[in-house]
Nucleic acid binder design. Structure first.
Length: 106
DNA sequence: CTGGTGACTTATC
DNA sequence: AGATAAGCCACCA
């Protein structure tokens, strides 16, 4: 567990309900503007340990591109239950639901 | 050490 | 929206 990982975890669990954040955004906040892939990796590996709301983290296109089919379905269901619109193609309106992290300080 | 890979990103068409 | 290309970085065989 390094500092970056801990920071990413803190940020992810700080995402408010009804909002979503992108990998790149989180990576930037955690201090690694190029670390989007590492954020994804952390999500993949640390979710079980920290019970992370991984479903609130999406790619910059606002689209759910997840490896595990079960995950995408679960993610869409959870987001819909939080009031976030998700199309049949797993596309989210980022303009509306992106987490404006400037309004929140960790 | 080297090379392949991925729950990514930005740019371009 | 979909497809392609180049770039970045940690993990694994």
């Amino acid at each position: 567990m390094n500092e970056f990982t801990q920071l990413v975890v803190e940020i992810i669990i700080s995402i408010p309900e009804g909002k979503v954040a992108t990998y790149g955004q989180i990576a930037k906040l955690a201090g690694s503007p190029r670390g989007a892939r590492q954020v994804a990796r952390i999500l993949h590996t640390q979710t079980r340990k920290f019970n992370l709301p991984w479903y609130r983290v999406i790619n910059s296109q606002g689209k759910i591109v997840i490896k595990d089919p079960y995950g995408a379905d679960e993610q869409r269901a959870k987001l819909l239950s939080e009031g976030i619109e998700v199309s049949d193609s797993f596309i989210i309106d980022l303009k509306k639901y992106i987490w404006d992290c400037d309004t929140i300080s960790i």
